[in-house]
Design a protein around this nucleic acid. Structure first.
Lengths: 212, 212
DNA sequence: TATGATTCGGAGGGCCGTCTCCGTTTACCC
DNA sequence: GGGTAAACGGAGACGGCCCTCCGAATCATA
């Protein structure tokens, strides 16, 4: 972190505008455009972020920090089921109105395939699920990975733009109802995956990313 | 359609390789790469498709044709509920294992915002839903638009690659259970949208696409 | 097999985005 | 205020991709 105020200000500005730009035009939007939006010269962009990947990486880091901020409320709910609700709703909404997030996550995973985002949260989520299942409120065959994937699914609706967000809760309702333990629940096919197995499957041998 | 056999062969090959390439590297992958994969000169690509959009458009057309092929089985099911199940499952799976589809759809919508893909199916889907609701099997507050969005959601899981497809049915199970009419179902918030309203909202005033 | 029309191949022009370089400006410290 | 180190700005070199052009190759026809 620089000691000069203008440098800090520009850094902030670039990050903020980058999130907006990436949301609007995708993660490969021209960085000259970023410079223009931030009211800054092209050189300044590259002084702060040696290349696009560094920028993506820093956006990723701020996102992880936001995640940490969400944790206490979710984990501190009165019942396990309420925690599940909050988990799916808060994270889903957070992804849905940050349309740049999925692309950023994917890119970071490409850059560093060994890095598993959110490992530190895994035991917490496992515990949260166990609690809700012990209450008999959450269907017994659902795993932490399933829940994470449902959040991704809900988050993908961010593609429809901000005006869609109010309607987004409709799909949320359906998913949550599907998660509830009830008589007549359809058993889930094939066994669920562990975090590590899912991670390896979706990254290690996925389609090769475009070389950059 | 040309009368020369080599021309037809190259056209097929280009379409096939384009789908694979777009699936792996995204819809903006270099067309020179497409030429290389198809074992063809760059000039040949542009003889068959004057530009990238023409290529995207033709992929879109073949996708719509595939959709038409799916219709009879879905609509011909014995019960309305079974039709709903088949609709969500078949279309969801179809999108999920064609990772290029969402981007292609989006691009076509950008190219021609007046064009509403699948209008001809709308009354069919409405009827299908009415039938399942009349049976008391499908929750009463769900709309055709909701169902389409759920298919998109499920389809977005194609991002995890082909190895994920078997596990995909787990999320499908949850969504279908969430769609069932049952005592204790959570009412859906905010009224649902009509097809046209949803289309206008998600295209007409969405974030401006990158100029090309 | 000969002929003519059609398609193919791939080198290269032009454009656009990335990133560097360095003269100019700004902020901090005394 | 003066001095110095750090940051800024933007022109332009560079590279990659889109698309064109035209001589070479291939196909349909007789």
């Amino acid at each position: 972190m620089s000691s000069r105020r203008d440098a800090r200000r520009n850094h902030e500005r670039l990050l903020r505008e980058a999130r907006r730009l990436f949301a609007e035009r995708g993660i490969d939007a021209p960085l000259d455009e970023l410079a223009a939006r931030a009211g800054v010269g092209a050189g300044t962009v590259y002084r702060h972020f040696p290349n696009r990947d560094a920028l993506v990486r820093e956006i990723y880091d701020t996102a992880v920090a936001e995640l940490h901020d969400l944790a206490p409320e979710i984990l501190g709910a009165e019942t396990g089921w309420r925690s599940v609700e909050l988990y799916v709703e808060r994270l889903g909404a957070w992804v849905a109105d940050s349309p740049y997030l999925p692309a950023v996550m994917r890119r970071v995973a490409e850059l560093d395939p060994t890095h598993r985002p959110g490992v530190e949260f895994e035991p917490l989520v496992e515990g949260l699920i166990a609690r809700a299942q012990a209450e008999g409120a959450l269907r017994a065959d659902v795993t932490a990975v399933d829940l994470g994937i449902l959040v991704d699914m809900l988050g993908s609706l961010g593609q429809y733009g901000g005006e869609y967000l109010p309607f987004w809760r409709r799909q949320l309702t359906i998913v949550l109802d599907g998660l509830r333990a009830r008589p007549g629940t359809t058993p889930m096919p094939v066994p669920g995956q562990a975090f590590a197995a899912f991670h390896d499957m979706s990254h290690a041998k996925g389609p090769k990313p475009a070389p950059r």
